[in-house]
Nucleic acid binder design. Structure first.
Length: 376
RNA sequence: GUGGCCAUGGUGAAGCGGUUAACACUUACGACUGUGACUCGUACAUACGAGGGUUCAAUCCCCUCUGGCCACC
């Protein structure tokens, strides 16, 4: 139960719900997509751009900011919001995902994780206590427990022990956390095993947090497996707390998750793919560097109302990308984020009107027909 | 006119007698899910200026031609 979160409406046709999450920097409407800004910047976007695409809350990363420029410096300069000139809510990831993504550069023990900096190779020891302290220094509105995120290839026994460790770490995180007004979310692990997920859920919910996140998804498993876990966990998640699925996803994944009743999401897909020339449109994904767009004077997405689609042609975006221009990253990222955030806005609207199931059906049909729309 | 050097794919360029012609760029097409990411993957020379010769075998040696560069007259 969270005092900050209110479910405003439940769609009569499915698990989807409309909510409001109150934070120190204002309320956010859910379901919501949170752009990822690892290094205290959503790559290629100014905070002004973020406001223009209606970003309500963004992510930053504990591990990265701890290494550079250092959380103490950020605290000294007035906290993360002031440091990066973003006055809306911020959620910081704990560094748990780096336990997964840094692979060989880290070593896990009961006490914590020894990392080798990907920047200069220096050694660092991140513990649940330190992860919380760093996040308190940064001053995010929502912080995450330090967890272990095992890969999809991990066997049952490993996942079981990993989940138990994550529970013990969650307890330590909660005991350490004291910053007033700042919310602490717990993370559920358990891989693709429903019994382990149920157990993790039970343990994490028993400890009690301001919100609950599903971790360990999109780590190499099949899509069906991921959807299966989403479906299996949804009815077990606390009804009155925000439910967050970490690290997802594609537009299809988001629609699926919202349908099951999840509220918050984050993913590097719109930003990273934008920088690699892959753009999301109402007609499917398009690879802007492809030959067919060479002389295409039309807008990227004729149905999109964003600044990029209203002012620039596909031919120009293709040229910018191929020329390696900085503006390519900027315009592409702007559009992709607008697309994701607008998709969530439309989802909220559909939920409010009890037609989210229909919205989902239409979306799936449209996107399986135009999975890789090539032309205009 | 004489002497010397050089000619390898769209580009720059390795190889210098022996089965698949290195590498980079360009180009084409993919991928990307709590960012180690303007990144990564795959494909792309029936062919080494042209013709002839030596050799079991020639991009690699020899001759001629063609073209380019440099020096001298």
């Amino acid at each position: 139960m969270s005092d900050n979160f209110t479910v405003l409406h439940r769609d009569a046709s499915c698990g989807a719900r409309l909510g409001s999450l109150k934070t120190l920097h204002g309320s956010i409407e859910t379901p919501i997509f949170m752009p990822v800004g690892t290094n205290a910047t959503v790559k290629a976007m100014t905070p002004e751009d973020l406001l223009a695409v209606n970003a309500q809350i963004i992510l930053a990363n504990t591990y990265h900011l701890y290494l550079r420029p250092g959380h103490c410096l950020i605290e000294k300069l007035g906290g993360l919001h002031r440091f990066m000139n973003w006055q809306r809510p911020i959620l910081t990831d704990s560094g748990g995902f780096q336990v997964f993504s840094l692979g060989e550069l880290r070593k896990i023990s009961e006490e914590g994780v020894k990392f080798q900096s990907h920047i200069d190779g220096s050694s660092h020891f991140l513990t649940p206590e330190l992860a919380v302290q760093i996040q308190q220094s940064l001053g995010a509105d929502i912080i995450m427990c330090f967890d272990e995120c095992p890969p999809a290839t991990a066997d049952y026994d490993y996942v079981k022990r990993s989940l138990e460790l994550t529970t013990r770490w969650a307890r330590r995180c909660k005991e350490t956390h004291q910053r007033e007004g700042q919310q602490l979310f717990g993370i559920i692990q358990g891989g693709m095993h429903y019994d382990l997920r149920a157990r993790s859920l039970d343990e994490i919910c028993t400890i009690g947090f301001d919100g609950y996140a599903l971790g360990g998804l999109s780590v190499g498993e099949e899509k069906e497996q991921m959807y299966g876990v989403m479906e299996a966990c949804a009815p077990l998640m606390p009804q009155d707390s925000p439910r967050y699925i970490m690290g997802i996803g594609s537009p299809e994944d988001l629609i699926e998750a919202v349908w099951h009743g999840y509220d918050m999401f984050d993913c590097v897909m719109p930003t990273r793919n934008a920088r690699n020339g892959m753009l999301f449109t109402s007609q499917g994904r398009i690879n802007i560097k492809a030959k067919p767009y060479e002389e295409d004077a039309g807008p990227l997405d004729p149905e999109c109302g964003c600044h990029v689609c209203r002012n620039y042609s596909r031919a120009y975006l293709r040229h910018l990308y191929r020329a390696g221009e900085i503006l390519a990253s900027q315009l592409n990222t702007y559009h992709n984020l607008y697309y994701f955030l607008d998709l969530m806005r439309r989802a909220r609207e559909a939920i409010r009107e009890n037609r989210f199931t229909e919205f989902r059906r239409a979306f799936v049909v449209n996107h399986t027909c135009n999975q890789t729309a090539k032309g205009g």
